[in-house]
Design a protein around this nucleic acid. Sequence first.
DNA 1: AATTAGCACTCCATCTTATTGAGTGCTAAC
DNA 2: GTTAGCACTCAATAAGATGGAGTGCTAATT
Lengths: 345, 345
Amino acid sequence: MELDERKLKILQAVIRTYLETGEPVGSRTISKYTDLNLSPATIRNEMSDLEELGYIIQPHTSAGRIPSDKGYRLYVDTMLDAKESEVQNLREELEEKAGRIDDVLQKVAKFLAANTNYATMVSGPRYQSKRVKFIQITSVDEENLLAVIVLDNNVVKNQMIRIEEPVNQEMVVKLNFLLNTTLNGLDVLEINLAVIQKLKEQLGEHTQVVDSVIEVVGKTLVEEDDLAIYTSGATNILKYPELSDKTRAAEILGAFEEKEIIHNWLGLPEKGKNNESRDIQVYIGDETQVESMKDCSMVTATYHIQEGVYGKIGIVGPKRMDYDKVIGTLNSLMSQLDDIFKEKK
Amino acid sequence: MELDERKLKILQAVIRTYLETGEPVGSRTISKYTDLNLSPATIRNEMSDLEELGYIIQPHTSAGRIPSDKGYRLYVDTMLDAKESEVQNLREELEEKAGRIDDVLQKVAKFLAANTNYATMVSGPRYQSKRVKFIQITSVDEENLLAVIVLDNNVVKNQMIRIEEPVNQEMVVKLNFLLNTTLNGLDVLEINLAVIQKLKEQLGEHTQVVDSVIEVVGKTLVEEDDLAIYTSGATNILKYPELSDKTRAAEILGAFEEKEIIHNWLGLPEKGKNNESRDIQVYIGDETQVESMKDCSMVTATYHIQEGVYGKIGIVGPKRMDYDKVIGTLNSLMSQLDDIFKEKK
DNA sequence: AATTAGCACTCCATCTTATTGAGTGCTAAC
DNA sequence: GTTAGCACTCAATAAGATGGAGTGCTAATT
């Protein structure tokens, strides 16, 4: 059996209607909905075929049909129109904040949650390689030194170093010189115990203070930056009866509290099809690879800050999410974001 | 009518039982539970009195009784035993992280949520006055200057400043000198447009670059630090039937996504009674002043990092929360925290 | 050969109606 | 003052009864 034009139209009608109502869709509804002018009986026959083909499902004998994962997939891959959306208003707000990337991303998450009524999450940019550009030790007061480290992606780290005894200016200069000559240009991944040990040796005569400074600087450099994850609208999940069952909702909402979990979600491998030109991916039901999300869908998109520096945005909702709108909004948002970051660069 | 010894005992029994079960408590249950050896009939009479006094409530005619807000309040104020709790294990984990206060606080939130099964929130320390200790402008590369600002509470701010044309070393030195002499020791609240204007004037000959540097430094100083709020276990709310009604749950959980709201909650005025010696406050039902929390209770505690620098910890659960355990845990945790921060200081 | 009307059948959702049982208040006895 | 006894109330649960949306099948129509 083949999917002819008419079956496709009917499938589309079933899905569209279901997306709106969340209720199983019957033949009579479709008969009225479409421009096909077919009687319910005919529709029934076609729907029976569509079920046999695996695109729709009957929750129970005398109910209408709802889309299967396979049905959604077909819909997402072939039946969506490109649409413009209302991202414009966000633009200027973002422009203003563009300095603080974390603010921008938080705002993006909020905006998306508010506009789509789904749960959203945004991961901060991951820098692929980080080289030391510049290190500076400064004496703040008698008890504290301040280490400021600039990486080549212009990320700044700083770390107070508590010291027992005051350090004289000469020593600070010497330390700065040594640290810079040794570490500059090194990838932070290359900075290990051996390098630190070597550093200490090079500084022939060295006090305990110097030791600890070098140690702290080394540690600061190596330390994992924590996952920057911004979420918003997690509670939107509760708006959809099919997800708001208490245990399931608790699982999903719980996951939204754990940055690591979110990070994993956003790290899902890309599916073959690329919708539009942007890196927008859709995961339906089991495709999310997460048991507790088997009744959800997730749409992800990738934004780029500069070559090799990117992060992801994800939107989680029920399978009957308004893919059209979500993808449209994401598309539009992505191009705005890329613009903003490009300017800034 | 007075609250005699026996009435108190019965009230206590009602509350204790209700805390465990969450179900209205009947006279027969109490009759068996207490060591009073009274028949259900007698208990009934006493309970009738207790209801008249406003300490307990009958949800409907033929149900048992549940504590009223007034009943809980009496219980919290007078009937709790001090108890030791299992905070010890947390200690060393915290010690290790003590450097990064935000990590510590996040961990505290998680620990409390996991241990109490309620929703928890922690606000980062608020510094009452912030004076500039030290400013340093450094030239990072041809396109960027880096401003590092240390406040007297040892909070470090830094800000990249993009510049059009390279700045020579001499100018940087001059800038540093000027900024430090003018701003050091000033409270950030005192740094307004006028001060910045004066700064510019003092620097007789000044290029546009210098202008922008001063502007950026000023802005960075004045900018509100964002609210540091850490939450955990919000979804625990769903575990309590009396709160997991969809709309109510959505409201509470939604609030947990908004830092401002949390911040307001934690800023509630203190109630008269102080439980134990620490600043532990209990807000029951309407006392939270938040409509959507009228079926919740909140316990807050204050931790101190140094003189005048403190933050708050809050635990939100159903009215029938295990006050005994929560307060015990908080008490113990607070003293641990205060210790840790003191050492670190 | 495709479409449609008609009809019997299924099954969920909803409403109605018992039934149960926990709990109370009251009265009279202890 | 305490308690046993009893009638009464009311939520929660269970057990039918009803209705309606929807299907699948068959036979008639185009």
